[in-house]
Design a protein around this nucleic acid. Structure first.
Lengths: 339, 339
DNA sequence: CTGAAAGCGCTTACAG
DNA sequence: CTGAAAGCGCTTACAG
């Protein structure tokens, strides 16, 4: 029925026989309007199919209610699931998500930041991306709150939410040692990222507490092919490891595939432990023992921190760490089981 | 260095010693400005850290350069990968993606549409969501182009991009028959969606061409648990199937897990074929024979169709089908192999 | 509670 | 090529 052209608050005002300001007030929560006026306006709005223009509102209020979400590499199942939960949480708070796919190249991040700023986002969540100091400074300059999800940047003064990665690594060390393993190797997450470094450090500390050295350690770069090659290489050694802690589940699946491909059994010949507990880890084909990142709580903390910073830009940055429990499944020999 | 407050074109104009319109022209591709003016303006802009406000621009031009992307259920790997490619393609064309996570409930879609319209998106892509006729009508009323990705809606007058699902189903039928299977069952995709229906229809037609009836058929609803239960049920029959075509890879993985859990070997005891060819299908643990949806081409067609409709709103809706090749791997006995 | 008016930060005819 | 001015669709003091 609508005329095709855009319907504005002026059209509604005309039909309802009130001023344009009155129309605006009806759609502004908390504004004072007489019930009768509101009713007339709502009726007219419905008849015309009117919706307030969020862009116009954003310009005036200085609040776009848009959050920029920067992600990359959605083939690691951890991130899609995180995006799903982050989006839902944000939507429930009345925010909308502007999605940016980043390659991790510096020039790319530069362009993304330009766009993020141009669209006047109220805040930014980065997942799976290394943030340069330059980006940090520009956000600070523009007064845009930013929270890093699943990555920290020590000394950057940026908020972050991660699981307790170092502690998680130690839990794995203790568990594997208790299970009777003595040649424990690590295929780490990318050592350029805090998550990768912290998990490795935790593992090594845990091993040291048991008087052990890491049997071998290779940077898996969070990449399947690299991790598979690393596993292959490790098993070729004169004394191969009896357990491998892999820096995330995504690589751990590739490692298990690689081990089986050369006739090795998991966990009879080698135990494998991952990190994340993505849904796939529970699937029969892998049945992966892993450290669970409590996604729901991490998302909650991320959104809470971001919104708090939006409301109070002066608020100090926070680094939140959430405890990550070890989930026992079939890919690693457990304490008490026969070797 | 910046003063904290927002920097506008007026600030830049002042510093550069030109009019505000001149500043605007410098940032408007195709506008005529003297090189010297442009240089002065750019210098001033850089010094102040100025970026044109996309929201203000959108209000005036009537083009937000935002595309609404509606998705759901990111645990099926097909969608994250599609989102990744869609986002990249759109970003390359200078568009931005406003992401909406939908539950498939009617009320939810209603609210999403409101938001989509309020943010003045230039176009909409829906993936994995059933679109009601109501939504269709409102988009048409508002003049917003919409393309359904990986789903069709016959008779809706909406554009869609899918693979050739029915043909894909027939290819599976022919392949399984040629491989010597005679008791071919189907755990279908959700029969409420065109994709689920078309793949099933294609399979049944292909079987009919070989003089066969489907051995059994259960709606798997694109749900892992439902599919696993269906597989379990089928194998309990007096004469179980010797092959199962599963409506998508996501369910096929669950089916394979379920079969192995009861001691059945794939493909020696039962052949399994999926649909999608998600990256995981190639992983060692499943090594799934499946029909490949050519994601790159589907994404290309989707973006192309949408942008064409944005440029010319009068353009008729198109339903594009892209051929889907069968990818042979180890989960199904092949023609010529010993039964 | 309500309307007239200013203004958010831009683009775009319109003169010059 | 350039500036002054109108206007995109709203919100929000300001009077009444």
């Amino acid at each position: 029925m609508s005329a095709g052209g855009k319907i504005t608050s002026i059209d509604v005002a005309r039909l309802a026989g009130v001023s344009q300001s009155a129309v605006s007030r009806v759609f502004t929560p908390g504004a004072s309007v007489a019930p009768k006026t509101a009713a007339k306006v709502r009726a007219a709005a419905k008849a015309l199919g009117y919706r307030p223009n969020s862009l116009a509102r954003a310009m005036i209020t200085g609040k776009s209610r848009i959050i920029g979400l920067v992600v990359a590499y959605l083939d690691n199942q951890f991130y899609p699931v995180a995006i799903e939960k982050l989006s839902h949480a944000l939507q429930n708070k009345g925010y909308h998500v502007l999605l940016f796919m980043a390659s991790n190249t510096a020039g790319e991040m530069e362009r993304l930041m330009e766009d993020l700023l141009a669209y006047q986002v109220d805040g930014i969540i980065t997942a799976s991306v290394a943030i340069s100091n330059d980006v940090t400074r520009r956000c600070a300059d523009a007064g845009i709150p930013l929270v890093m999800f699943n990555r920290g940047q020590p000394g950057s003064g940026l908020s972050s939410v991660t699981s307790a990665n170092a502690l998680g690594g130690r839990k794995v060390a203790h568990f594997l040692v208790a299970g009777g393993h003595r040649r424990i190797a690590h295929i780490s997450g990318w050592q350029g990222a805090s998550t990768g470094r912290d998990r490795a450090r935790g593992l090594f500390e845990g091993l040291a507490e048991a008087g052990l050295e890491p049997h071998a350690a290779i940077d898996g770069l969070y990449d399947r092919a690299t991790a598979a090659a690393a596993a292959h290489h490790m098993m070729q050694a004169a004394t191969p490891p009896d357990a491998i802690f892999v820096g995330n589940d995504h690589m751990a699946f590739a490692v298990i595939d690689a081990l089986r491909a050369i006739g090795l059994r998991v966990p009879q010949d080698v135990s494998v432990v991952g990190y994340d507990d993505v849904p796939m880890a529970a699937w029969g084909a892998y049945d992966l023992t892993t450290v669970r990142q409590p996604l729901a709580r991490m998302v909650e903390a991320t959104v809470e921190t971001l919104l708090a910073q939006i409301e109070d830009p002066a608020r100090a940055a926070q680094s939140i760490e959430i405890d990550a429990p070890l989930i026992l499944r079939g890919s690693a020999r457990q304490p008490g089981e026969a070797p």
